[in-house]
């Protein structure tokens, strides 16, 4: 609704500006935001790019050795590392699974929330908000305790004492994935719940009068109306899940057995920042930024279309 209003005002502004004083005014309005954003984001990104073309380690920072320009040397090292590619692939796969999982759980619970009484709904949203509010570190540690081989509640309940959940690669990804989903579904749930609440009752009523089942009216009526919202949620989730670090780092002790559960951020930390290889680390940072920029472009497109469509 607000998006629609914004779209309308933006449109009329644009028309008036074109008629009136040219194109300076929009920039004037943007100036305060730019004054904050450029130094805050522009400078670090500039430094990141700059460092990524230097051989820049602790010895260079403290002046023990001269800084040398290596051009794309850091990028060559990175892209030539077979492990980087396998980790990248693994990260993409894991992030994709997480996005699907988060969305499925979030959407299912959002629909559930529209159908239950006030008390269970409040209970559910409070529980979800608690999961949302829990710091990633705390949540990961708690889940790790739950799945502890000897003392964990899960093993005691299932009666499989001594079973190590963090031994097999896929089981480990499963447990860590569940933790990540648990952390991130509340956002999806709350957003979609708000969206569903905004679907006009008359439309749903019309659908049911035409003989649509609940399942049909969900897929054929609610989902198309929520499509812009879903797009945004999906892209946000992609960005979050691609950058996953804490859960993997904490729960698998830095990448699991023989590094089988490493994701890109953990890899970056271990090969670069943890070893004071600031140049190489910056190169990894730039590559990640580029990948996420592409995703963000889709995000902005989606936002833009929301304004047009409604």
């Amino acid at each position: 609704m607000t998006a629609m209003a914004a779209g309308v005002t933006a449109g009329s502004h644009r028309a008036r500006a074109r008629r009136g004083r040219g194109r300076v005014r929009p920039w004037l309005y943007l100036l305060p935001a730019l004054a904050v954003l450029v130094p805050l984001f522009g400078y670090p990104v500039y430094m990141l790019g700059l460092l990524s073309v230097f051989d820049y380690r602790q010895a260079q920072v403290s002046g023990g050795q001269p800084t040398t320009f290596v051009g794309f040397g850091n990028y060559a090292t990175l892209l030539g590392d077979a492990r980087f590619w396998s980790v990248l692939l693994q990260t993409v796969g894991f992030a994709a699974a997480l996005v699907v999982g988060t969305l499925a759980v979030g959407a299912a619970l959002a629909v559930l929330m529209t159908r239950i009484g006030t008390v269970p709904r409040v209970a559910l949203s409070l529980a979800a908000l608690a999961a949302w509010a829990a710091p990633a570190m705390t949540g990961s540690t708690v889940w790790m305790f739950l799945f502890d081989a000897d003392l964990g509640l899960v093993n005691q309940v299932l009666g499989i004492d001594g079973f190590n959940w963090f031994f097999d690669k896929w089981v480990t990804f499963g447990v860590v994935g569940a933790t990540v989903v648990w952390h991130s579904f509340p956002f999806v749930m709350v957003t979609l719940y708000a969206g569903i609440q905004a679907v006009p009752g008359s439309v749903l009523e019309a659908a049911s009068l035409d003989g649509a089942s609940t399942w049909q009216s969900f897929w054929r009526v609610i989902v198309p109306i929520l499509r812009p919202l879903i797009t945004i949620v999906v892209i946000q989730s992609i960005i979050w899940d691609f950058k996953i670090f804490t859960q993997i780092y904490v729960m698998t002790n830095g990448g699991g057995i023989a590094g089988q559960n490493t994701v890109l951020n953990v890899y970056a930390y271990q090969t670069a920042f943890g070893s004071s290889e600031y140049g190489l680390g910056s190169a990894i940072g730039v590559v990640m930024t580029l990948i996420l920029l592409v995703v963000t472009m889709f995000y902005i497109r989606a936002l833009h279309r929301t304004g047009e469509k409604l």
Partner: peptide, 19 residues
Amino acid sequence: VAGIAAVALVACAPSTAPT
């Protein structure tokens, strides 16, 4: 292009502490 880029970058090399 590489040369120009190199000059531009070296001109503003990241700082090091005074020895």
